[in-house]
């Protein structure tokens, strides 16, 4: 037994796991999921000024599971196809390159990161929150007459550190033969997801704006975001709106409207109302996704 483990056994289980988790993060020994290969290729392709939609379609075609999931999403009510979409080429024509790329990323990250055996319901909730944050992000950017590109990806990945922590905690529990209550695991996710998200952005070479959103999206940090793009501010509000939509018991409208981020985005009550009106279509989108 290593000296570290020898000392951790004297601690309460929660503290033992915490100490080992911190140790992994600090020593760079955290088990990080690989960015699914297709997602990596999709990102490379969409950042390549010479790329085109045909190359993207042929890339997705190589991963039959991904292609199948994309067809399923493209046929969902969220995208309202005029007629059933039966081929990837048809999906390409209907969704367009940017949507298709977002979808490919979304589906491959979901299957590569947001899948944890034994915690299906919890991870599904995390995934729905991530997706809702991405969708709200786009609406907030549009309302503020900001460029909406990247707003979805920033929202989708803002808390990508959470499932990674879950994977690691489960692994540590197994190694130590411990079992923590979900509340403790959730606290770990809350406490460490920003720093773990940061490690992921380095590892996955995510765009700078996504990195900024992950690092600074919290209420007490968005003011420190270094770039003038407002991605952190937008993601912060999108995160709150997603929580309000998916867990309405946690926050009432009064509390939501009193959030400092609402003032800092300079949103008047009618602006917030128009954003909240997007809740229903966003819920429809989430419900129509094969989660």
């Amino acid at each position: 037994m290593s000296p570290l483990l020898a000392s951790s056994v004297d601690l309460e289980p929660v503290e033992q796991v915490r100490s080992l988790l911190v140790d992994r993060i600090e020593k760079g020994e955290l088990r990080l999921p690989l960015l699914p290969q297709v997602a990596h290729q999709v990102m490379t392709l969409t950042n390549d000024p010479d790329s085109d939609v045909t190359r993207l379609a042929s890339l997705i075609q190589q991963d039959q599971a991904l292609a199948g999931q994309i067809l399923s999403v493209a046929n969902s009510p969220a995208y309202m196809p005029r007629s059933p979409i039966v081929s990837l080429q048809q999906a390409v024509a209907w969704l367009g390159m940017k949507h298709l790329a977002d979808m490919a990323l979304m589906v491959s990250i979901q299957s590569g990161v947001f899948r944890v055996q034994g915690f299906e319901a919890e991870v599904k909730a995390l995934w729905r929150h991530a997706l809702a944050t991405g969708l709200f992000g786009k609406e907030i950017a549009r309302l503020g007459r900001h460029n909406v590109e990247n707003a979805f990806l920033c929202g989708l990945l803002h808390a990508v550190g959470k499932p990674v922590i879950l994977h690691n905690v489960i692994e540590i529990q197994k190694l130590q033969d411990l079992h923590l209550p979900w509340n403790s695991i959730r606290d770990f996710m809350e406490e460490f997801h920003v720093s773990v998200g940061n490690l992921l952005t380095e590892n996955w070479k995510l765009p700078d704006q996504v990195k900024e959103a992950i690092t600074y999206y919290k209420d007490h940090t968005y003011k420190h975001a270094p770039s003038p793009t407002k991605v952190a501010l937008i993601t912060c509000l999108a995160d709150h709106l997603a929580s309000y939509l998916l867990e309405p018991t946690l926050m009432d409208e009064e509390t939501l409207l009193a959030l400092p981020v609402i003032q800092d985005m300079n949103l008047y009550s009618e602006d917030v109302s128009s954003l909240l009106e997007q809740g229903e279509p966003i819920l429809k989108t989430l419900d129509s996704m094969p989660l």
Partner: peptide
């Protein structure tokens, strides 16, 4: 849409 078709703000 401020994504593909922009105005002088976006």
């Amino acid at each position: 849409d401020h994504e593909h078709i922009l105005d002088s703000d976006s």
